[in-house]
């Protein structure tokens, strides 16, 4: 039982990170129909900027806030310089653009930062709690509750604020939203800033546990993308469920079957789900207009 609990803790922790990355995918997808493969680079930028600001002598908390703001600016720049000029391009072209952006950002990180592996201290020490015979690090709790807090804040934003409702309206129908007087360009910019910021927060939360370097983004982008698709693209709840599901599958496969094939189990489950539900778990079926 304590063994299962241990795997459960690690699954939820990893799953929370995937859920945050998937949420970033979802926000940008809703605003612009773009699947942003550079999403993982936001996580990397959040972690790496914090490391370097912290090492430059800025205390951890302001360094993290600054890093999140910087990453949001990168997100806005990505939208203005690469996504907006390519509006109306095909799915494949947009995938190539965002993959190009991710390679570009990785290259910049290599130059601006370095190629070493970095970390900064955990927020509340390294002394693990013992629960039912299993241990959990305080940083794990930061990650899990951090993710929950972000989902809660976004739920409030989307359902209770006018700006949040404007984002939802734009996601539903851009032209109709524009006709209702919503500044859809601003919504796009806001979405990229939010998505990059959430990615950066994930990076800040996870770095003390998993360390960071210029190339951590791609693996996270793949998992986050898979999580978003598993849940159903464009659904924030789907991102949460998809992310946690993939974290759990990975942890259980690594624990009970084979750690080498933990990623394989993830993709087998995704393929199986898509065979039965071609639009993900919470996705609506797409209707073509002729």
């Amino acid at each position: 039982m304590s063994e299962f609990l241990q795997f459960l803790f690690s699954g939820v922790t990893v799953g929370a990170v995937y859920a945050l990355v998937a949420l970033g995918f979802t926000i940008i997808y809703n605003a612009s129909d773009v699947v942003n493969f550079a999403q993982g680079e936001f996580v990397m930028l959040g972690g790496m900027s914090t490391v370097f600001l912290y090492e430059a002598g800025i205390p951890l908390f302001p360094a993290a806030v600054l890093a999140i703001i910087l990453t949001s600016i990168v997100g806005v720049a990505l939208n203005k310089l690469a996504i907006e000029p390519a509006r109306g391009a095909s799915v494949v072209s947009l995938i190539i653009i965002t993959i190009g952006a991710s390679i570009f950002l990785r290259g910049m990180a290599q130059i601006v930062f370095d190629k070493q592996i970095h970390r900064f201290p955990a927020f509340s020490g390294e002394q693990p709690f013992v629960v039912g015979g299993a241990t959990i690090l305080p940083q794990s709790l930061w990650i899990i509750f951090g993710a929950l807090a972000i989902f809660g804040a976004l739920y409030f934003f989307f359902t209770k604020t006018l700006t949040g409702k404007a984002v939802l309206a734009t996601a539903n129908n851009r032209d109709a939203a524009k006709l209702m007087g919503i500044n859809t360009n601003f919504i796009m910019t806001l979405s990229f800033a939010m998505s990059a910021g959430i990615g950066a927060i994930a990076g800040v939360l996870v770095t003390p546990m998993t360390l960071t370097s210029y190339d951590v983004g791609i693996a996270l982008a793949l998992k986050g993308f898979a999580a978003a698709m598993l849940g159903g693209m464009g659904r924030p709840l789907g991102a949460l469920v998809g992310g946690l599901a993939i974290g759990m599958i990975e942890a259980m496969t690594a624990g009970y079957i084979s750690s080498e094939y933990k990623d394989a189990a993830t993709f087998i489950v995704i393929l199986a789900v898509l065979f039965i539900m071609p639009n993900g778990i919470f996705g609506r079926s797409a209707i073509d207009r002729v």
Partner: peptide, 28 residues
């Protein structure tokens, strides 16, 4: 046959999965 029923990004993630599974077998 099952994969090509999927559209757009869903097709992308399914083919991505197949590629990664093959890679993992070769690697492991």
């Amino acid at each position: 046959r099952p994969i090509l029923r999927l559209r757009g990004h869903y097709l992308a993630v399914a083919t991505l999965g197949v590629g990664i599974l093959i890679y993992m077998v070769l690697n492991n």
